[in-house]
């Protein structure tokens, strides 16, 4: 086994149950709030912090810049990278740039379509997809880029990066086999860890984990913090592959407004506790409630 390139990799290698968090850069240049929350609440409770890349196709400050700012504060980022907005020239260049700025974990994603965001008239790129992006990263690590020199040989890099490469999967998609086959391809292309779409159904997740037991990459189960019962219903109707069971919706609905956050923390903690036996970590997407992460970790008994 090669030397880990990041704390996230070394913790997962050690077999420890790992928690990651997530921040979304702001729409604008006031990054202090998200940096403060990462420093105050995430730094000491998670192994690494994902930084979303123009999440849901809503224009905002970029993931590379904020990932670098996290590095400068001693917080390890997971640099999320989507193929929606940049072609292979820009993606490869950004990978090299991120590396020289101290970024070591990369999560390769296709990215929500521009139609889902606030610039629906933009031209979607998708030069690469998540599988070919992972292959491109693996290629850069071998000291090559995707281009060819005049003799038809791969271009050689003057210094190759090394990343801990991640990918995503939707465990509770209605048709799970095409998701699993694509996950196999991502791992074949170089993915070393998996962070999942939000899961609220431990039984369905365990079934999924059994189906991918042949895959050796560690899996961090994704959980999005519920803020209201309405949000849970919205996710059920509008977010593909997410199914919040009625019992959980009811708990949120029954909670008094001032107790919702507490109930949400309990729900997250219980979900992690119920699923931790069959996966290697949890990815907590708190959507601004970053201060809840230490309590979720506690509630999960970690």
């Amino acid at each position: 086994m090669t030397e880990p390139v990041s704390n996230l990799q070394s913790q997962l290698d050690s077999g420890k149950f790992v928690v990651t968090g997530e921040i979304g850069p702001p729409k604008g240049v006031n990054v202090d709030k998200c940096l403060h929350e990462a420093e105050a609440y995430l730094k000491n409770s998670v192994a690494a912090v994902n930084v979303t890349d123009i999440q849901t196709a809503v224009m905002r400050t970029g993931s590379m810049a904020v990932s670098h700012l996290l590095v400068s504060k001693g917080i390890e980022p997971v640099y999320q990278m989507v193929t929606r907005d940049r072609n292979r020239l820009a993606l490869q260049s950004d990978l090299l740039s991120a590396y020289v700025l101290g970024v070591r974990n990369v999560l390769a994603l296709t990215g929500d379509h521009v139609a889902m965001g606030d610039h629906p008239a933009a031209k979607p790129v998708y030069d690469l997809d998540s599988v070919s992006l992972l292959a491109a990263i693996t290629n850069l690590e071998a000291g090559r880029d995707m281009g060819l020199d005049t003799k038809g040989n791969p271009n050689q890099l003057d210094g190759a990066p090394r990343f801990f490469k991640g990918a995503c999967v939707t465990p509770c998609a209605e048709e799970v086999e095409p998701q699993i086959i694509k996950l196999e391809k991502k791992i074949e292309a170089g993915a070393q860890f998996i962070q999942t779409q939000a899961v609220y159904d431990p039984a369905a997740f365990e079934k999924f984990m059994n189906r991918i037991s042949h895959l050796k990459a560690p899996v961090l189960v994704g959980i999005v913090m519920l803020k209201t019962a309405g949000m849970a219903k919205y996710m059920n109707s509008s977010v593909p592959g997410v199914n919040v069971p009625d019992a959980i919706i009811k708990r949120m609905a029954d909670a008094a407004k001032e107790d919702r956050q507490k109930v949400s923390i309990e729900i997250c903690g219980e979900l992690v506790a119920k699923m931790k036996h069959c996966c290697q970590g949890a990815h907590l997407m708190t959507l601004g409630w970053d201060h809840c992460v230490p309590e979720i970790v506690k509630a999960a008994g970690l």
Binding site: H113, M116, D129, C168, P178, I181, P240, G241
Partner: peptide
């Protein structure tokens, strides 16, 4: 896409 379903299915 050329490698299969994305998460938006």
């Amino acid at each position: 896409l050329i490698n299969g379903t994305c998460g938006g299915t």
